[in-house]
Design a protein around this nucleic acid. Structure first.
Lengths: 123, 123, 123, 123
DNA sequence: GTGGTCTAGACCACG
DNA sequence: GTGGTCTAGACCACT
């Protein structure tokens, strides 16, 4: 379900956070579904439990999961809200990049190309 | 000319690199113009000279400036090439974000809003 | 494994970079293998850790190694590409020297001698 | 006769040394011919006289020129010897590069290509 | 004066 | 334990 890339420069806990968040936002992990326990996931991924612990803490801070003491960790019920919030984030990131691109003389055609279905191919 | 934000998580030397590169790419620092000396800029920004040195070394590596012992640091002549390369980078970054946005259900209208002149305002 | 020559005019960090790169390109350090830690190598060579750090940073920039916080530095997987690139570099360097040699009246026999198995002995 | 490239990372005095040495080795500056005075060359190139002084000192150390106090600087009479020495130098440099290339798996065909008349074109 | 290298010692983030 | 950043202060080469 989750894969760690040891060649990735990003910290391991961050890889876990991003993958779980992504799965939850896309609905692959439905609201209320239970996550593997810290220990279990640590064993599965051959990772220090502290690292998983930290990832779960970060996910809880972001509102992606909630911890029920003694029962486990579960995907939050408010994923729709989080999805909207994430989309706003992406929007402002794109906006900032667009500003930069315009300052460097990008044409409208280029901008349109980047957001078209085959965006990458037009680069 | 350059401002350091200590609340920014990014390292100081990287902030210096990005700001100088941005100024050079936009033409605010014309090709051949001399940068402040390592020591002088260090005093201006109340930063250790080693940190400025590191920033200048990185800028030279990127081809934005060239350094000459005993003379100083100067803006490179090939900014046009670097500008094109940077635009391609921005394009692929936007492309990646667009893919993410679509996966989360972003509409075409939203995407168009983000790249419109008032992109930020529409987020 | 690595030796510093203090009589060499080249900076220490550059000597480290070149030796590690050479070992990696020749396959003496296989892809994925872990390098000594910054501190450990610093002790081994009786050098300041900052200097080793700088060497490792340069190696990462060249794509020879990759670094992961809290885990260590590892030899990159794409050594084949880097080997090809390095060969092209050597080729153009030899080409430039050959041009110089011809301008000074070198004979074809001399050139052939230099690239023969016992090249050094014929000089 | 001599051109300084301020965008070159190499120190100015070294550029002067190399160009004079090259002209002398190729015979463009015949043995016994007089060089411009330190002051005159400094004015011509818009360079600090100290820099020219240093270049001439290095050229004398290498035996390329000799200084006659009060009369000026002149190209050495032993250029043939220096030319031979320089060729030996180039030979050993090529030899070292060839060793490196072989260690990285270069074929004999590649080596031959690099020293052929159109060496660069084959790279 | 300029840039470049090195040392010593500190602090932070990650596992 | 690991790597990454920063400061302080020194020395060298070049103009």
């Amino acid at each position: 379900m989750i894969r760690i890339d040891y060649r990735d420069a990003r910290p391991i806990y961050e890889q876990v956070v991003d993958q779980v968040e992504s799965l939850a936002l896309r609905g692959a992990l439905p609201s209320g579904s239970q996550l593997p326990s810290v220990r279990q996931l640590a064993v599965e991924l051959s990772i220090n439990p502290n690292t998983i612990q930290r990832a779960y803490a970060e996910l809880e801070r972001r509102g992606v999961i909630y911890a029920a003491k003694g029962r486990g960790n579960f995907i939050s019920d408010d994923m729709a809200v989080l999805r909207t919030r994430r989309l706003e984030e992406i929007g402002s990131q794109i906006g900032a990049l667009v500003v930069q691109a315009r300052a460097l003389g990008a044409t409208e055609a280029q901008l349109q190309g980047w957001i078209s279905e085959k965006g990458e191919g037009m680069a």
